[in-house]
Design a protein around this nucleic acid. Sequence first.
DNA 1: TTCATTACTTAACTTAAGTGAACAAATTTT
DNA 2: AAAATTTGTTCACTTAAGTTAAGTAATGAA
Lengths: 193, 193
Amino acid sequence: MQDILFNFISKYVSLTEDEKNALLSLDLFHSLKKGTVILKEGQRSKESYFVLKGCIRVYYIIDGEEKTTAFYTELDALTPHCVINNAPSDYFISCVEDSILLISNTDMSEEINSKFPKFDSMCRMLSEELLAKQQIDFDEFKTSSPEKRYLNLLQKRPDLIQRVPQHQLASYLGIKPQSLSRLRARILEKDKG
Amino acid sequence: MQDILFNFISKYVSLTEDEKNALLSLDLFHSLKKGTVILKEGQRSKESYFVLKGCIRVYYIIDGEEKTTAFYTELDALTPHCVINNAPSDYFISCVEDSILLISNTDMSEEINSKFPKFDSMCRMLSEELLAKQQIDFDEFKTSSPEKRYLNLLQKRPDLIQRVPQHQLASYLGIKPQSLSRLRARILEKDKG
DNA sequence: TTCATTACTTAACTTAAGTGAACAAATTTT
DNA sequence: AAAATTTGTTCACTTAAGTTAAGTAATGAA
């Protein structure tokens, strides 16, 4: 698990043994059972998450209905809005599968960042990269029909369609579960004919 | 114009006179006419933009049709995907109005960031903030109907609806111009009845 | 294993967005 | 000022998503 982390970090900065040990001493690794809720609406969390194994999802409860808006899988990083904003969270986060997460909090990060400016620089690069990537995702979403979005997802994250319940996928695609069922049937029909 | 910039920066870090002068010596301010295209599809730009005055938009040309996906107005910052990715751009950027932009390139930023670690830290904070904000925008988009999105925009960025042509707003809302016209008529009808 | 709950699909009907076309209004060019 | 282009609205028609409801399959708990 540690190797996975250091391997990921090495894409941005190279760490000395001292720095690696400083990171490990923080006890960041956590194993969580499927279904565990790690952030609740209204909570003022200061935690950031990095997925080493498994899958977590972000969802809102609007008019009593769950609306899933994001999935994070292996090597994805997430700092919830409430952490940045220091405000109560608008959404929930829970584990879709048994997962191993790296969990850090703001105070920790600030301490490390001030000790090792490298980390600050890495976080900047990571944020910039994620921001640019998310902009592209958002653009694709805006310029596509639900059907195209589904086909696009099938290309880019085929694992998600296996790992995640359909009704969660549906709201992730911005539609109702019934529409996703229908849409899939329509695509299969096209492939035949 | 400089005051606007320094005032913005002061929300993140406090600069010395030396640092301010270092920034100013870079000749970052540019006036651009409405309609000017500042980034073209296929280009490998290294420029980032900060809007001091005016409005710029990001758009794709898909099957010969313009699809506008983002507007940046006063105090908005944009580093295009192609800059982060060092790849040819998938989209265009142009001025919706006569605009005053701060334009920096990657080499410049790296030089400044290495001279003044403060800037690195500021960029990290800014990126994190923008990432979190955009996540919320994306979530709202996914969980709303076109009509709700329009009403939401009317609340959050009423200026845009005045400043920007309807057909550009339409694709920004993920729909066709005709649908936006109809949707607006529908809302007016509701307000009456 | 059975019962209960949750997840997924199908169908009929409603509502709203996409499409193509015509037209009017506004803006830009000549 | 006139012509040309761009922009916005309206309409009739098509297509697809939302809604409600029923039924089946899968999962989890007693």
